[in-house]
């Protein structure tokens, strides 16, 4: 009898300790890892850009095999998992900047913001759609509900600053509402094709029942040599 009671209580303590450790992992450790990965990627992008090689040298696809070289006019195609831009949102604070990488896989989202594959490229005609974590993994989009129409979303790809202005949002929708990242999203109020930006994150903060969306249009572009855009100047 004594052995049974002792073993049972030891089991309870073990399970309790496991839960505490898991919570610590979710709340704290994913953030530590993600912050490290994000600043590494930003450093890597800055190094790449300062060397003048904006386009990545090697190209590998998701399964590790090399993809065929495609020659298209305009910007180079993005590669899954590879960061290609840095996003700044002054509303989230002047020190807020996150790398944007291609693909919305779990592994990509764990290291920063994720560009939906198949949506427009940065600054191009169409809808440049980006997803980010609201909670865990560094909480990049924690303050998402504070975004308001008129707020700037600034991105750079190493050669150009792109300043987008938010037109609508945060708009709450359901996870299956894939129309929000259409080239001309119906619910956004846009009626004509243009250069748009869509940001998505989860809602409620710790849940997954809904999504929050904001839409923006490309307001201005500026070459990197010309200095930071007005939206980033204090």
């Amino acid at each position: 009898m004594r052995v049974i009671v002792r073993t049972f209580s030891e089991l309870c303590i073990t399970i309790g300790a496991l839960i505490v450790l898991f919570v610590a992992y979710i709340l704290f450790w994913t953030g530590v890892r993600a912050d490290g990965a994000m600043s590494d990627q930003i450093d890597q992008l800055h190094r790449q850009w300062s060397k003048g090689s904006v386009q990545p040298a090697t190209r590998t696809s998701r399964d590790g095999t090399t993809t065929t070289r495609v020659t298209v006019s305009g910007p180079a195609p993005y590669h899954y998992g590879r960061p290609f831009a840095i996003m700044y949102i002054p509303r989230f604070g002047f020190t807020w900047n996150k790398p944007v990488a291609e693909g919305t896989g779990r592994d990509v989202l764990a290291k920063g913001l994720a560009h939906y594959q198949g949506t427009a490229q940065l600054g191009q005609e169409g809808n440049f759609a980006v997803a980010g974590h609201r909670r865990t993994y560094g909480d990049p989009f924690l303050d998402f509900p504070k975004l308001r129409p008129g707020d700037a979303v600034v991105l750079t790809d190493g050669t150009t600053w792109f300043t987008y202005r938010i037109d609508k949002g945060p708009y709450k929708t359901v996870p299956t509402d894939v129309e929000v990242i259409d080239p001309v999203p119906r619910t956004s109020g846009y009626t004509r094709p243009g250069r748009y930006l869509t940001l998505t994150t989860c809602d409620p903060e710790w849940g997954h029942s809904h999504r929050l969306i904001v839409w923006a249009h490309l307001d201005s572009t500026r070459s990197v040599e010309a200095g930071e855009p007005a939206a980033l100047r204090r």
Partner: peptide
């Protein structure tokens, strides 16, 4: 175990 929790669902999909 972490993907079994909902914090990862930040995208819209089918």
């Amino acid at each position: 175990a972490e993907p079994l929790l909902p914090f990862n669902d930040v995208t819209v999909n089918n």
